[in-house]
Amino acid sequence: MALAVDIASWACLVAGALLCFAGGVGMIRFPDVYARSHAAGVIDTGGALFILLGLALQAGFTLVTVKLGLIGLLLFFTSPTATHALVKGALAGGLNPLCHQLTADETAALADKASP
């Protein structure tokens, strides 16, 4: 039983570390702020979730797990707000995204393809 928990916690911690690393690489590779905010999103959600889960599995049913859960909850509420504020600020600061602006027709075409 203890071995199974250890293996699960190993898997979570390694997955979290890899996701954090991937997000960091994305921060370097992606071309503009808006694309980089997606890489930051990987660290904020996936990396944080897996690392906190791995730590919680190690801690077991204690106050430590409650605190880890609170950290996770806090990150999941604040990180989208901060990212949204940042992207909105960048847009208001006159930074144009390096990408294609979909027209109304293209949007409708994508929506049609999505709904069965």
């Binding site: 911690l13 954090c20 690393f21 921060m27 702020v33 660290i43 600020g89 960048a90």
Partner: peptide
């Protein structure tokens, strides 16, 4: 192992903070 991944991510984001063309 987890610490190594986290530290690597910290280094990479720090590089972006130093390079970053815009303030955002």
């Amino acid at each position: 192992a987890a610490m190594a991944g986290v530290l690597a991510a910290m280094a990479l984001t720090l590089v972006r903070a130093l390079l970053g063309p815009t303030v955002f």
